Amino acid sequence: MFRMVILTALLAVAAPALADEEPTGDRVAVNGMKMYYEVSGKGDPLIVLHGAYMNIPAMGEIIPVLAETHKVYALEFQGHGRTTDIDRPITYPNLAGDVAAFMDAVGIEKADIFGYSMGAAAGLRFAIDFPERVDQLVAASVAYDYEGWQPAFRDFVPQMSVEMFLEMPFAAEYRELAADPDGFPALVEKLIALEHEPMAWGEDVAALETPVLIITGDADVATLEHSVAMFRLLGGGVMGDMGQPLPASRLAVMPATSHTAVINQPALLHAFIEPFLQGTTPKGFFE
């Protein structure tokens, strides 16, 4: 939040110079809800998907950085930010379907996807369910199987309660943007239920042809072993310098980084994301 205060102050000072670069916000009908989204930048389309309990501002500085080279469409999911809630559970297939419906509504046939946390799992599910609509997927802080979450997190899930989340800072922040300022408890109930949803997508991941960049913190909510296992399912983990091209998918580990610290390092994220989206690789001795 302190970073966001600083960013807001800097943008206010630079407002005249950045006037033409301000994101454009709008709402569109998606599966019975009014989905809020913002568009910024120019270039190939890149859809940005936020994490649970978050919104577009909470994604921080990575969006304007990505907008320097891409046309970024940042969405707010069901019941999050300025998007309305509907009488429907929040599940990863539902979120993936919402992304597809959003693309239909705004006329995007195919796009790159960048998701963080819940948004990364939604992006992964989207790549599984709608492979023809994804160019490349960047999935930060993701798991493809419930068993991949850290034991401490799996132990915490049964203890989750609405009351617990009502005491967290983002409960008050929710009211500032929410389409329904009193809708936070209902959102929490749905997101707790999401944590209990079955998740075992190993076969689906292994069948993916979409290039995936997996980004994880070395102290993230998914274990390092799980991130490596996912990378191997995607064809990664082989030896380079043997005359064969590197796999299309990649793995990046952010040092000294917890789950919530991943999104607060835009420069490092961008250093991983941009070369992947551009298809560039470091050159070895034998090239």
Results as ranks from 00 to 15, higher is better:
3 R>Y: 12
5 V>R: 10
11 L>T: 05
27 R>I: 01
29 A>L: 02
33 M>G: 06
42 K>Q: 13
48 V>N: 07
49 L>I: 15
57 P>Y: 10
59 M>Y: 05
59 M>T: 10
63 I>T: 09
66 L>R: 05
68 E>R: 15
75 L>F: 12
76 E>C: 13
78 Q>L: 14
80 H>Y: 10
84 T>H: 07
84 T>E: 01
84 T>C: 01
87 D>K: 12
89 P>R: 05
95 L>R: 14
97 G>T: 11
103 M>H: 14
105 A>H: 13
105 A>S: 15
111 A>S: 14
112 D>Q: 09
113 I>M: 14
115 G>A: 05
122 A>P: 05
124 L>P: 02
129 D>E: 07
130 F>P: 03
130 F>L: 03
134 V>R: 06
135 D>N: 14
135 D>G: 06
136 Q>I: 00
138 V>R: 03
151 P>E: 02
160 M>T: 01
160 M>Q: 08
167 E>G: 14
168 M>S: 04
170 F>T: 07
176 E>H: 05
176 E>C: 00
181 P>Q: 09
182 D>L: 07
182 D>Y: 00
184 F>C: 09
191 L>S: 06
193 A>L: 08
193 A>R: 12
200 A>G: 01
201 W>D: 15
202 G>W: 05
203 E>N: 09
203 E>L: 00
211 P>M: 05
222 A>P: 08
223 T>L: 06
225 E>N: 13
226 H>R: 03
227 S>Y: 05
230 M>F: 07
230 M>Y: 06
231 F>Y: 15
235 G>W: 04
241 D>C: 09
245 P>L: 11
246 L>H: 12
255 P>I: 06
255 P>M: 08
265 Q>S: 07
270 H>W: 10
270 H>N: 14
272 F>K: 02
275 P>D: 01
276 F>R: 01
279 G>V: 05
280 T>W: 01
